[in-house]
Structure formats: structure tokens, C-alpha cells
Nucleic acid binder design. Structure first.
Lengths: 257, 257
DNA sequence: CCCGGTATCGAACGACGTTCGGTAATATAG
DNA sequence: CTATATTACCGAACGTCGTTCGATACCGGG
């Protein structure tokens, strides 16, 4: 977005190829802790700590909170050090997203396949949705990138393997998986907007929203008034699953046809 | 994203309430043209010109190209002037998005209702998709805001009115409209990534992508290889409509329930 | 003519991503 | 053990960004 004008020059190098920068060498310490006596004045990082602290920062205070300066402070080091592990902010956010997807995959791994392939698809979709809905930054960034990151790829494959069991031709299988993924990410990003204020007032601005809707002219907005109560009392997860079921029942229909 | 730290203080005022800042006064000129003789050294703007130039900037060169400095230069004026019309960048992008949605609404207005309500839903959804898929900035920004902007609200209502004709109860109607909108925006944002390179090489990086997929291990990624050819030859619009039809056929099933 | 509201201007500010020369810590060689 | 190379870290400095603010031009009504 700024700084130099032009092409993306990669950093000098990367420690290993994947994983930690300082694997297990002597004096290897956890996440950038401070001096452990009186020795060692410089901090020590690792790709893992950089990425997971980035995720923490994003989860705690949103996309705007992830700055190289804030991240460096959190790691107890300097700004420039981060560039040893990532080539820039884009890559950092990509890695953070992939990190989250990895946890989704881990959480759903090993689940024995249900008899109905679509039950497996649903379970995977719901798990992914739950991870994205509380992370607006993930939805916004991952649209369009989902199938590019390693773990995004794995998620895509896992979903696809279940759809394959339906016996549809390649084209329809491809379209089905893309549709499910698009729906999940789109809906999750669309719904994930609660300020998470869990104090005494946890309207999270919803009542305010409802009031705004109610104030609209009934004759000009008949539908809005028709569904106003539903909007006021809706649960995001339920709403998502209802939409997902519409999509999946359409898919089942196609599989039978 | 930066500058001052805290609360959003609105600007001094807004010229009218909606529309032009200098409505039709003497010497009112189109979009910030330069001096028309030797007189008048200062530029003159309007909310409309500010917003439409912002849209043009976004469409021509993407989200990062929308800068207050670039916009001011395009309008032939100074940076500070823009703040007379909008309170900040957020509002500017919101207005730009609403501007685009307004054009979608205008383009689909007056279409006589088809016999099948779902045909109307589909037409509206496709029109909206087409507008978003070529505008990544719209998708990314409008997730979660869709139902907040005036024209977003109108789009929601228009979609809802067609769904109402299915005779479903409020809850299911609400869920259906939300699902369709989420799917449209999500999928559009997901697909809208062509670099629009229309030179001799218009792979737009797709072949590169295909190669990357092909290189994956067949045993570990059976689904990816199963749909590889489809991915290589797919058309975004077709893919979207196929997914939309799945969703709509599920909805039809529910309406017959 | 002047005067007050309206609209425009651009220098300046702080935060941001990124670069780069320098340096500490460690590994390896002699 | 010393010398040297490699690895990892550091933070001042640069250019761009959104935003603010006092100054100033424009304009219609007294």
C-alpha cells in the first residue's frame, strides 16, 4: 500500500523452508521472551511465534491492530526482525489465515465419515464457518485466496472428497464445492460483525439496527417489515445453517436427478 | 486506519443533505474542471462528482488507488476540500459502494415480474453478481454492510419481495434472502480476481494456477485432479449461476414442502 | 461597500509499511 | 583459543497515507 513504489522483492532469505527460524539450537527460547538473567540482550523469534502472535493481535483487536510495530513490541524485538521471517504484510496475513485454517482442519480431522456424504460436507462447512464468523479479518482477506494457501487447499480437497461420493460428474462436483465454499466464506464475513461487547449491554448495536428497520415506510418496505421479528431474534449460526441446508438439499436433488 | 487515534468526529457540515454541494449557482461547473478563461482559480466540487470520481478511481486501478491525494488531483482541487463532502475514507467508500448498487437497481428496475418468482430472484442476483465480480473493492467492503446502506436496503427489499411470493413463513423468507445475498457477495468476491490483463497474455495467472494444482500429489489430492480440467476451463459467471441454481432449487423444494 | 456564511486550499502531523547499514550471537575453520 | 563467516536481529529513516486546521477565496444580502 505504500513505502516503496514497485515490485515485491523477497527478503534476504528464510531460516529453514517451513517452520521455525531457530529450530532447536542452544539457547533456543520460547516466543521472544526477555533476558533470562543478565545475559542475552537481543530477542529471539521464530516463524511460529511471529504468526501466532499476529493471529492473537488480529483476534484481540481486529485488522487495524496488526501493525509491524505492535507485533514487534509484542515479540519483544525490533520491527525489522519480522522481515526475516515474512516478506511483508501480505504474506504475514496470509500465513495468519492459513494458521487458522490449519486449526479448523485439525479439529475436524479423524471424524469418521458419516453414511451420508452431505453430513460430512455440512460438518466441515459449519466448522469453517464458526472459525471465520468470529474473525472478520479472515473472511475479508481470504475471499479469493482460499484455494491458494496450503491449508486452504487441504480444506478444499477434504470438502471435495465428500462431494465426490455423490457420484456427480467433474463439472458439477467442481461447481458444488466452489458454491459451498463461497457460501460459507461469504455468509460468515457477512454476519461476523458483532462488537463482542459482553458487558451489561450486549445488544451489539442490533436493537439500534432493528429500530432503523422499523422506522422504514411499511408500504415501501413490505418485506423488511414481514421479517422484522425474525431479524430481531435471529441467531447467526442458525441462519447460516438454514442457508447451507438449502444449498445442500439442492445439491442432493442434483445428485439424484 | 491512521492519523488521529480516536472517535469519528463528523466534518463541519454537509452542503445540502443529499446531492450536490453547490447545486446550481451561477458559475456552477461540471466536475472540477480547470479555469475556463482567466478567472476563478479555485476548484468547485459536488458530492456527486466526488463519489463518481472515487468509483472511477477504484474501478480503474483497484482499492489501493483510491487516495485522497489522487482523488483531489483528479477533481482538480485540494485534499482538504473532499472533507467538506465526506467525513472520511470509510464514508467515501460506503458512498462509492452505494453508488454502484444504485446503478444495479436502476438497471434491473421495471423488469416485469416473471411468472416464477425465482426467475426474478435469479435475475436480480445475477445482475448484482456481475456488478461485484468486476469490483473486488465492493465485495470486500460490502460484506456486512450490505443491509446498512440505503441502496443496499433497497436491493434487500427487492429480493425479499420476490421471495415473499413463494408464500413461506417469515423466518424461512428471511433466511432465504440472507442466504442468496451472502452467496452472491461471497462468490463474487471469491471469483473477482482477474488482473484484467487483456494483452497478448491474458492467462491472468490461471494457467500458472492450474500448473500448481497439477503438480500436487494425485493420491493425496484425488479431488483436485478429478476437477482439474473443469477448473482450467471454467467460466466465473457460469460457475456462479450453477451454484445459485443449487441454492434456488433447494429453496423451491422448501416452498413446496 | 463590507460582512458573514460557504467552500476550498495545502502545509503539517502522526502512524503506517518497508528499507538498510550496522551489529550481536552463533557456527565453523584454522 | 582465535579468526572468520553466517545467521538473526535491530531501529533510525524514508515515503505515503488519512486527517486536521488555520488561512483564504468566493458570494449573496445588507
Amino acid at each position: 500500500m505504500s513505502g516503496m513504489a514497485d515490485a515485491r522483492t523477497p527478503p534476504r532469505r528464510r531460516p529453514g523452508d517451513v517452520g521455525r527460524g531457530r529450530t532447536g539450537g542452544p539457547g533456543s527460547r520460547p516466543t521472544g521472551a526477555r533476558a533470562e538473567g543478565a545475559v542475552r540482550r537481543r530477542a529471539s523469534h521464530s516463524l511460529e511465534s511471529v504468526v501466532s502472535e499476529a493471529v492473537a493481535l488480529l483476534d484481540e483487536a481486529g485488522e487495524s491492530a496488526l501493525t509491524f510495530r505492535a507485533l514487534a513490541a509484542r515479540l519483544g524485538g525490533g520491527v525489522g526482525s519480522i522481515y526475516w521471517y515474512v516478506s511483508g504484510k501480505d504474506e504475514l496475513v496470509d500465513l495468519a489465515g492459513d494458521h487458522v485454517i490449519a486449526s479448523v482442519l485439525a479439529a475436524t480431522e479423524g471424524r469418521t465419515h458419516a453414511e451420508d456424504p452431505l453430513d460430512d460436507v455440512r460438518a466441515l462447512a459449519v466448522a469453517f464457518f464458526d472459525a471465520v464468523v468470529v474473525r472478520p479479518w479472515l473472511g475479508a482477506r481470504f475471499l479469493g485466496n482460499t484455494e491458494q494457501q496450503p491449508n486452504g487447499m487441504l480444506l478444499y480437497e477434504r470438502l471435495g472428497q465428500q462431494v465426490m461420493r455423490l457420484g456427480l460428474p467433474p463439472r458439477q462436483s467442481f461447481e458444488a464445492v466452489s458454491a459451498v465454499l463461497g457460501f460459507v466464506v461469504g455468509t460468515a464475513a457477512d454476519l461476523g460483525r458483532q462488537p463482542t461487547s459482553d458487558g451489561p449491554e450486549r445488544d451489539s448495536g442490533l436493537e439500534e439496527h432493528v429500530e432503523h428497520w422499523r422506522a422504514l415506510d411499511v408500504e415501501q418496505f413490505p418485506f423488511v417489515h414481514f421479517v422484522l421479528d425474525e431479524f430481531a431474534t435471529h441467531d447467526d449460526g442458525e441462519q447460516f445453517r438454514a442457508g447451507l441446508d438449502l444449498l445442500l438439499s439442492g445439491l442432493r436433488l442434483q445428485a439424484r436427478g
